[in-house]
Nucleic acid binder design. Structure first.
Length: 113
DNA sequence: CGTGTGACGCGAG
DNA sequence: CCTCGCGCCACAC
């Protein structure tokens, strides 16, 4: 046949990239965080970190979007778009922030995805 | 089907 | 350690 479009080499081929992002993020345990790039790489799309962020912006309520941060362990949201809410949710799960507002990924990062 | 867009990442300076 | 700049890529129009 002739796949008109690049098909990912896994069983989730029928799902959209966004759907696969959500499925993966849902696996992140309470009190742990993952990075945008980490999710992208896990889906076989190393350069799609920004797309993961976009997916988070429009994600379903069941998805723990607050457990996704950038590679520096910082919240990527701007104060006006939800920075505070994400920080509050993470703190409620026991995630600590340093004085610069960063999370220690070696401690809270979840590598199980 | 070309173009714009963004909750990123990473190398350089 | 910090800032700046450019590449990335799925998706909506």
């Amino acid at each position: 046949m002739k796949p008109k479009r690049r098909v990912p080499a896994d069983s989730s081929e029928s799902l959209t990239f966004f759907a696969r992002v959500y499925a993966l993020v849902r696996k992140t345990p309470r009190g742990r965080v993952v990075t945008y790039g980490q999710v992208a790489r896990a889906l076989g799309a190393p350069g799609a970190a920004r797309t993961v962020g976009w997916a988070m912006r429009v994600c379903p309520d069941q998805v723990p979007w607050h457990r996704v941060v950038n590679a520096r362990g910082e919240i990527s949201l701007r104060p006006a778009t939800g920075y505070h809410e994400q920080r509050v949710r993470l703190k409620a799960e026991g995630v600590r922030f340093d004085r610069a507002g960063r999370i220690d990924l070696n401690k809270y990062g979840f590598g199980g995805i």
